[in-house]
Design a protein around this nucleic acid. Structure first.
Lengths: 109, 109
DNA sequence: TTATCATTCAACCAAATGGTTGAACAATCT
DNA sequence: AGATTGTTCAACCATTTGGTTGAATGATAA
């Protein structure tokens, strides 16, 4: 499953940048045109266009044309995949809480 | 909350690399010495040491000395934070799907 | 068709990332 | 103390990343 791993590279790579997380947060509330998305940031429009390209490659967002402008919205399936990945770890932790407690007690307080 | 955002930078940045995800996966099953962690990878020991530094900075792992060697284990709280972050998005999507369903149900079948 | 608005592309730059090698340091064993 | 095992550090290199500017393209409105 090399492709699967690559997908996670893109997803987590996208989420590693604060501007991109902020964009996701904003379009989660309501879909927006690219110009509208770019407005609050101090960087250039081209920089935002690049960020959107990265989010699109990770399939975290999608664009659709609406007349002159393009409207951006979240792609539900993808963050779900990332969440599923992290849930595996939560499961392991829950199974091993007793052991973890032992580890933690070895640290100085 | 700039620090919080920075923490997410580190967490997701860590998870964006396949070698680091693989290390997490392996030590999730059982804690391991650094030498043991490094064994299966083709890259140098120093490279693995760097990857561990990155995971440590993100607080996804912690080391403790056990005699001559250092043993690495997961840090439970941190992935939880990332999972919480992603859960917010799942919540939003679920709300939207509910609305969509409600909307669709107003039409005759 | 031309002007205008919305967006991307290309070329460039500085800084960060992921790797290498070889020397240095830490802890234990003899 | 010296040898051995385990791990990090420093210097270096190639590639990627996140930004810039200015020109080019796409779609609609006049």
């Amino acid at each position: 499953m090399v492709e699967q791993s690559l997908r996670l590279d893109f997803i987590f790579g996208s989420l590693a940048d604060p501007t991109r997380r902020d964009i996701l947060r904003r379009i989660a509330k309501e879909e927006m045109s690219i110009t509208e998305i770019a407005k609050p940031y101090k960087m250039t429009f081209a920089a935002i266009s690049k960020h959107l390209k990265i989010l699109e490659k990770a399939k975290l967002i999608a664009k659709k044309r609406q007349g002159k402008q393009q409207v951006v919205h979240l792609t539900p399936a993808t963050i779900n995949d990332a969440a599923e990945y992290l849930k595996e770890y939560e499961k392991i932790w829950n199974q091993r809480l007793d052991l973890l407690e032992k580890y933690l007690s070895t640290f100085p307080t």
